[in-house]
Design a protein around this nucleic acid. Structure first.
Length: 300
DNA sequence: GTGTTTGTTATCAA
DNA sequence: CTTGATAACAAACA
C-alpha cells in the first residue's frame, strides 16, 4: 500500500528521471485505469485518446498531495496518478534489466514485480530517449486521469486536509481536528480530508510512537497527547521516507527496487513478535474494518 | 471454497 | 447540512 512515504519516494525517483523528456508514445493496455475530467473532454475539438493527448509533450514537474501524484504537462494540464493499493510506477532505461536491481530484502514480493512489462502492466510511456515508464496495477484500483489546472487545484484544496511535512503542518491546525469530533484516533488519521497521506501502516506506527491506542476517542486526548501524536506523525513519515518506504507486498520504488523501511516497523505486520520498546507481544485486532496493530503495554 | 489484505467511495443512519 | 459507521469494490494468495 503506497502511503505518503512510498508515493514521495516514487515522486523523487521519477522527478530526476523523466522530467523534461519528450513523450514519444503511450501504450494503454487497460482502458479502465484511464480517464479525463469533463472539462478536458468538452475542450477537445475531436475525440482523442490518452496517447494522442500526451504524445509530444513533456512532464514539467511532479507534485504530490497525500498519496496522489500530479504530473504537469503543457497548457497547464495535469496527469493525476493514484496508485491505491497495488499500483506501481516503474521506470526503466533502454537495455537495463530492472531484475538485476531486485536483490535481497525479500518480503513476499510477487514474481511479477521482477520484470516489466508484465500481465499487470496497464499503461506504458515511451520517452524520446527510449526509456520507459510502466504503470502496473494488479488490483486495478489505481487510475490515471487528465485534468485541467482548475480541477487539479480544486482537488488539492477540497479533497485533502493538512499536508504533513510542509510548513502548513501546524500544531494549532492539527489540534483543531480533535475538537468536537466523536471519532477515534485511527479513523481521524486515515481521513484524507482531515490529514493527507496517512494509511494503515503509518496510522498504526504513529499511534504506537505516541503511546496511544488507535481506537481511543479523539475527544479524550489531552493536549500533551495530541502534541506527541503531532510530533510522531512527522517523525514516522520522515524516517520512512529516509528508508525509501515500506515494501512487504506490492510496493516498489520507481526503479523497481524495494523500500528499506519494513525492518524498522514497530507494530505493523509484527503481531506475535516482541515489542521493540518493552518486549511484550504485539497484538493485532480488526478495528473499523482494518487490521490494527498495537503494543498492549506501551501506552500512557 | 474461504478468509485476508486496504484506499477510497457509496450508502445509509443519526 | 454534517458526521460517522459500514459495506463494497478489486484480485491474488495461503
Amino acid at each position: 500500500m503506497p502511503e505518503l512515504p512510498e508515493v514521495e519516494t516514487i515522486r523523487r525517483d521519477l522527478e530526476r528521471r523523466i522530467v523534461g523528456k519528450k513523450i514519444k508514445a503511450v501504450e494503454v493496455r487497460d482502458k479502465k485505469v484511464i480517464s479525463f475530467s469533463s472539462v478536458i473532454l468538452s475542450e477537445a475539438k475531436d475525440p482523442f485518446s490518452f496517447g494522442s493527448f500526451l504524445r509530444g509533450q513533456k512532464f514539467a514537474k511532479i507534485e504530490r498531495r497525500g498519496k496522489l501524484l500530479a504530473f504537469l504537462v503543457a497548457g497547464e494540464k495535469y496527469l493525476l496518478v493514484h496508485l491505491k493499493m497495488t499500483g506501481q510506477l516503474i521506470y526503466k532505461e533502454k537495455g537495463v534489466r530492472n531484475k538485476e536491481k531486485m536483490i535481497a530484502g525479500g518480503h513476499k514480493i510477487s514474481e511479477y514485480d521482477l520484470q516489466v512489462p508484465n500481465k499487470f502492466t496497464r499503461a506504458i510511456f515511451i520517452f524520446a530517449d527510449k526509456s520507459q515508464l510502466f504503470f502496473n496495477d494488479m488490483r486495478r484500483f489505481g487510475y490515471m486521469k487528465i485534468v485541467d489546472k482548475k480541477e487539479k487545484e480544486r482537488i488539492w484544496r477540497e479533497d485533502f486536509g493538512i499536508e504533513p511535512l510542509t510548513k502548513d503542518f501546524k500544531f494549532q491546525d492539527f489540534a483543531r481536528l480533535f475538537k468536537n469530533r466523536k471519532t477515534n484516533i485511527k479513523a481521524l488519521l486515515l481521513n484524507q480530508k482531515l490529514i493527507s497521506g496517512i494509511g494503515n501502516i503509518y496510522a498504526d506506527e504513529a499511534c504506537f510512537c505516541a503511546g496511544l491506542l488507535p481506537w481511543r476517542k479523539v475527544a479524550s486526548l489531552k493536549s500533551i497527547e495530541i502534541k506527541k501524536l503531532f510530533q510522531c506523525i512527522s517523525q514516522v513519515l520522515r524516517v520512512a521516507i529516509k528508508n525509501r518506504g515500506t515494501s512487504f507486498s506490492d510496493f516498489v520504488d520507481a526503479t523497481g527496487g524495494q523500500g528499506g523501511h519494513y525492518n524498522f516497523l514497530k507494530v505493523y505486520e509484527r503481531a506475535g513478535n516482541k515489542c521493540r520498546r518493552c518486549g511484550s507481544i504485539i497484538n493485532k485486532i480488526r478495528h473499523a474494518g482494518r487490521g490494527t496493530h498495537y503494543c498492549p503495554e506501551c501506552r500512557k
